[in-house]
Every structure is written in structure tokens, then in C-alpha cells.
Design a protein around this nucleic acid. Structure first.
Ligand SMILES: [Zn+2]
Ligand SMILES: [Zn+2]
Ligand SMILES: [Zn+2]
Ligand SMILES: [Zn+2]
Lengths: 149, 149
DNA sequence: ACGACCAATGTTATAATGTAACGCTCAAAT
DNA sequence: ATTTGAGCGTTACATTATAACATTGGTCGT
């Protein structure tokens, strides 16, 4: 989706939900959407400074915090990067498959059955999982060791 | 287990595996084992400096790297802390349940059935998961919101 | 309209976490 | 005995994130 249209959709959603998508927040979200790749906070800062040179780190971090809280983006803990959440029916984070070789990140949809089993499992320890905030590390399709022929 | 005994066991294991548990590495592992809680690299550094005041960050990070590689400890990505892995049959990391409220960390054992399902699921995207390096966030038993009576 | 309030932002400074690079040492291998 | 290389010491720096306080600008009650 074109970034401008995407931002418009988020803006509409925010109106419905009584959230304020301020210019700063929209700018940060637009940068992440345009790149469509995991960016560091300082990558975002550098982009934002193209538009508003006096921008300082707290401005970026505050915007990121808002966008994370409302599930427009997710924070990749293992790489300190930020990524726009794929939008399906609604705004929500997705479990991630992170390749430890090429660092690629794939957003996936866990089957609801598997989610239930994970919830059940955590429940045995008295734990209730936050939905879908998991990061799985491994090797992506391109980085699998080759079979010897 | 008493830390000295634990270190002895790790040392024996390292001999078997032709790994070198040097004094630095043993000291870092002992600190983590004694505290038995997630510590930051700089927490470890401060402890180590009690014994060897000239210690610098790279010394700690190098020891941590070795200990992680060989599964004696695990790195908690979401909090930048390091934790001794529970030892069962062998040395291996455990999936973690991390409470986002009180920050407590519980090492768990995923059923082998659930592991298979996760592997199968990731496999559908062509992904092969590194075993057991998962962090799940949620609320622990003590931090569950109370039911209204 | 007026002032009180409050969320968002600006601004300065610093904290916390992690690494690059280079050279030394010592034990093992040849 | 020389070579080699892993481990480590050391300096300097890079990267990620936050504390603290001042300022702005809109909303609400009166
Ligand atoms: Zn609007
Ligand atoms: Zn890959
Ligand atoms: Zn020994
Ligand atoms: Zn808790």
C-alpha cells in the first residue's frame, strides 16, 4: 500500500479510537512504512532530521513508544529495530521469524490452535501471555546449510 | 547447588568437550550462578572489578559470549540481561517466560510435542528454528489482575 | 473571555549497553 | 626453537535509550 494511503488509514483508525496521530508520530510511522524494513531508532532519527533538522532522540523514542503501544509497529528486541506491523483485520503485532545469518525478518501468523497450546502451556506456570509478541530465531530458507549432493 | 561445585561440574564438562573454562570465564559464570538472577553485563563487570579492579567491558563481553555459545548461560534479549541456564540432563538454554510487570523470569520446558509443532510451523515458511531460544512475554502468577469478587 | 490544566513536544545532558582495533603473552603444535 | 593462535589487556569509541526540566498549545469549566 502507498504510504500516504496507509497513513490515512491509520489516521482514520486513530480518530475512531480517540488516539492522536500527531505530525511527529505520523512522520515516524511514514518513515518506517516507506522503508518497509527493520530500522533502528537512529535510522529513523536521521530520516526525520532530513525534514526537521533539530529533531532529537527523545522525539523519536516517544513516537515509537506510542506506535508500539497501539500496535502500529513492533519493537524487535533481539536487534533493537522497529518494524511496521502487517495489517490484517486489525492492528496487531505478529510473531517474528528472525534469521540469525542474514538478519531477515518474517512476520508470521501462528495458527490459533498453536496459540491456544502456548497459552495453555504458559498457564501451567500461572503465566498469561501477551498475545503474539514472540520472536523466534533460526535460519531462513535462503540460509539453510546446503545438502551435500 | 553450591557455586563451587557447579563450577567444578562445568569445568569437568569443558574438559570432556575440549573447551577452555579460563579463570575469567569461570569468574563470570560463578558471579551469575551466585546471584542466580538476570544480571546486566555491567552488573557482572562491577562484581568482577571487586576481584580484579582493572577489568574492562570487553573482558566481560568475551566471557559472556563463550558462555552463551556453549549454553552455560543465556542472553535475555528483551532486557539485556544474562542468566545461568538451568541444567537438566545437559547444558541447554530454556524458553523463558518474562513478566512485563515485575520483570521476573521463569525458565520453562516446552513439551517436545509443542516444540515439534513450532518447528513444523516455522518449516512452512522454510525456516529452521534454533532450539529453545524463545522469549515469551506476559504476566506471571503474582501479577495477574485480580478478579473482582 | 479567562485561567487551570494536561498531553505533547523541545532541549540539554547523560546513562546504559556493546564493539573495533591493536598489540601482548603464553602454551601448544610442528 | 620457531611458529601459531586463542585469550586477554587496553584504548577508544559506537550504539541505544532515558532523566529531567522548560515550553507550547489546545480543551474544559466557569
Ligand atoms: Zn484528522
Ligand atoms: Zn537468512
Ligand atoms: Zn582443569
Ligand atoms: Zn510478575
Amino acid at each position: 500500500m502507498i504510504t500516504a494511503n496507509y497513513i490515512q488509514r491509520v489516521n482514520d483508525y486513530c480518530h475512531q479510537q480517540k488516539l492522536k496521530l500527531t505530525p511527529n508520530r505520523a512522520a515516524v510511522l511514514a518513515i518506517l512504512h516507506k522503508q518497509n524494513a527493520p530500522l533502528s531508532a537512529y535510522d529513523v532519527l536521521a530520516e526525520l532530521q532530513q525534514q526537521q533538522p533539530k529533531t532529537k532522540p527523545p522525539t523519536v523514542y516517544r513516537a515509537l513508544e506510542f506506535l508500539i503501544q497501539h500496535h502500529f509497529i513492533q519493537h524487535i528486541e533481539s536487534t533493537s529495530r522497529y518494524l511496521v506491523s502487517q495489517q490484517q483485520e486489525s492492528f496487531a503485532p505478529h510473531p517474528l521469524l528472525i534469521c540469525t545469518d542474514c538478519k531477515s525478518v518474517t512476520q508470521m501468523n501462528l495458527s490459533s490452535e498453536l496459540k491456544l497450546e502456548l497459552d495453555h502451556f504458559a498457564g501451567q506456570q500461572g503465566f498469561s501471555l501477551h498475545p503474539q509478541s514472540y520472536e523466534f530465531q533460526g535460519l531462513c530458507a535462503s540460509c539453510q546449510p546446503r545438502q551435500s549432493a
